[in-house]
Design a protein around this nucleic acid. Structure first.
Length: 485
RNA sequence: GGUCGGUUGGCCGAGUGGUUAGGCAACGGUCUGCAAAACCGUGUACAGCGGUUCGAAUCCGCUACCGACCUCCA
């Protein structure tokens, strides 16, 4: 039975869909004004894992992940400007050109790390009207007010009936004393009120007409609007990064509750952040490593390039609710661990069935399921898979055996957990043309003959040269194996 | 300042009242012409101080340190 940690209750809860076998799942996607970084990968992989596992359990999942392509307010010296618009001016591009470029780039990266596409990927810019309608509902219910062409959410009014801060564990009184003074807040009744619709300043390039004048939607309204549009007023799971918990998700709850009179989300799930040298990685901190940089090794903090699968495995080796500290050393150990796991699966393929079994794959399978059922505990799952690899080697070296039936189960288990659920895939080996293969085999045949003559100088020479060219040779009794390194 | 979370062996990272997490690295051995791979074996880990308990890394309290959120962020 699957248990997931619900941020709302701060404990693990049994997962019960509202309308089984259907599951609705909404995840906050990227704001497309820059390349995706490690943090985007972690969120995407966390919820990809959940998506894959729910499907494995037989649920019919609708996975919705948005693309934020409407500029949000940026709070720096150029306050009032939005990110996408600012980027567009710098690069002298149409805002939608920026959006398209980074959306494409995001999709490409997500494909590289082997995440499945969401079933629906709504764009905020394609739902301006819905967001206006949603805002009107909140206005009509009396939880928002118009001020100088902008619409703000009335947090205090809301808090009289509901609890603003229930998700992040805050009280309004605390918020009152802790809200920073920001520019341009005279329009708001209270500093913690937030915009549902913002009037466009003259220089603002991304804007749409509305009954309140030219403007653009507020920071949080797109998620309330699009999640309920595609998943219904009440749906099962809402996910996102820990950093979105407040204020973003808190505001979402307030908006949806104010508009619909009920809470939309049953289970709130948050993945933790990736740190670099113990510090949060973030664009604003300038220490974010983009996925393109990781895959190319082109970043001052990187000793070398790391493959998409090394990144995926690295992320899965930590529990999604723990911070994960990135370092060359840490990801290199994951890289090697993944190799060992995949090689174990190759070894498994070569095992010949026996009449009896010394190992029970079903117990392993059970333990793996239990790990996932326990709030997606992938590190424990992976540790079980490594235990299994130990058994595979034992059996392959003749110190154990598997019946044909158990062998089949073992293979099925690994395919299911490693490929289908963890979403790992064998590294792409260097393209092997038939002619290369023949030449390598020819060299190794010659080496074998040299070895028979006890001409070890020649044999070692061939092996060393092949290794220089990325080919690793392993001797076997009376023969050899080789692979691209 | 407020709120929340963390501190596990050389590194990463699970666990959470009594039993080996796991990976990487290291060391010894088997195998090998030598390697590689594989296998076998090896680590007196739970920030500090008190308390509860037959028993605590795990519960409680205090202290120290680190981090996150409170501002756009995965």
């Amino acid at each position: 039975m699957l248990k997931i940690y619900n941020t709302l209750s701060r404990r693990k809860e049994e997962f019960k869909p509202i309308n089984p076998p259907h599951v609705g799942m909404y995840v906050c996607g990227p704001t497309v004004y820059g390349d995706a970084h490690l943090g985007h990968a972690r969120a995407a992989i966390t919820f990809d894992l959940l998506y894959r596992y729910l499907k494995h359990l037989g649920y019919k999942v609708r996975y919705v992940r948005n693309i934020t392509d409407v500029g949000h307010l940026e709070n720096d010296a150029d306050s009032g400007e939005d990110k996408i618009g600012k980027r567009a001016r710098l690069e002298e591009l149409e805002p939608m050109e920026i959006v398209q470029r980074y959306t494409n780039s995001y999709h490409h990266n997500m494909e590289q790390i082997n995440t499945l596409s969401p079933d629906i990927e709504p764009h905020a810019s394609g739902h301006i009207i819905e967001q206006q309608v949603f805002t009107e509902k909140i206005l009509k219910n009396g939880y928002a007010y118009e001020s100088n062409g902008s619409i703000y959410f009335d947090v205090e009014k809301y808090n009289q009936k509901y609890h603003y801060g229930k998700l992040s564990g805050r009280k309004l009184e605390d918020l009152i004393s802790n809200t920073r003074d920001l520019e341009g807040q005279e329009e708001k009744r209270h500093p913690y009120d937030f915009a549902l619709w913002k009037k466009a300043t003259p220089g603002h390039i991304m804007k749409w007409p509305s009954k309140w004048g030219e403007g653009y939607p507020g920071w949080h309204i797109e998620c309330s609007t699009m999640s309920t549009k595609y998943l219904g007023d009440i749906f099962d799971i809402h996910g996102g990064g820990m950093d979105l918990l407040f204020p973003h998700h808190e505001c979402e709850i307030a908006q949806s509750t104010a508009a619909l009179g009920k809470e939309s989300v049953r289970y709130w799930m948050h993945n933790n952040l990736i740190t670099i040298n113990g510090q949060k990685m973030g664009k604003s901190l300038g220490n974010a490593i983009s996925l393109n940089e990781i895959f190319s090794g082109n970043h001052r903090l990187l000793e070398k390039a790391y493959s998409p699968m090394a990144v995926r495995f690295f992320i899965l080796q930590a529990h999604y609710r723990s911070t994960l500290d990135f370092s060359n050393r840490a990801i290199q150990s994951s890289e090697k661990g993944l190799e060992r796991l995949l090689e174990g699966m190759e070894t498994l393929k070569k095992i010949k069935p026996a009449t009896t079994s010394t190992y029970n794959p079903e117990e392993l399978s059970k333990k793996c399921m239990e790990a996932l059922d326990d709030d997606l505990n992938t590190p424990v799952l992976i540790s079980h898979l490594f235990e299994g690899v130990k058994q595979i080697h034992l059996i392959a070296s003749g110190k154990g055996s598997l019946s044909a039936d158990d062998l089949q189960k073992m293979k099925g288990l690994y395919d299911t957990f490693v490929f289908d659920i963890l979403g790992l895939e064998p590294e792409e080996k260097q393209a092997q043309s038939a002619i290369t293969e023949k030449l390598v085999n020819l060299l190794l045949d010659l080496r074998l003959e040299a070895k028979k003559r006890k001409d070890f100088d020649t044999a070692d020479n061939i092996r060393a040269h092949l290794l220089e060219n990325g080919i690793e040779v392993k001797d076997t009794p009376g023969g050899y194996e080789w692979q691209w390194k």
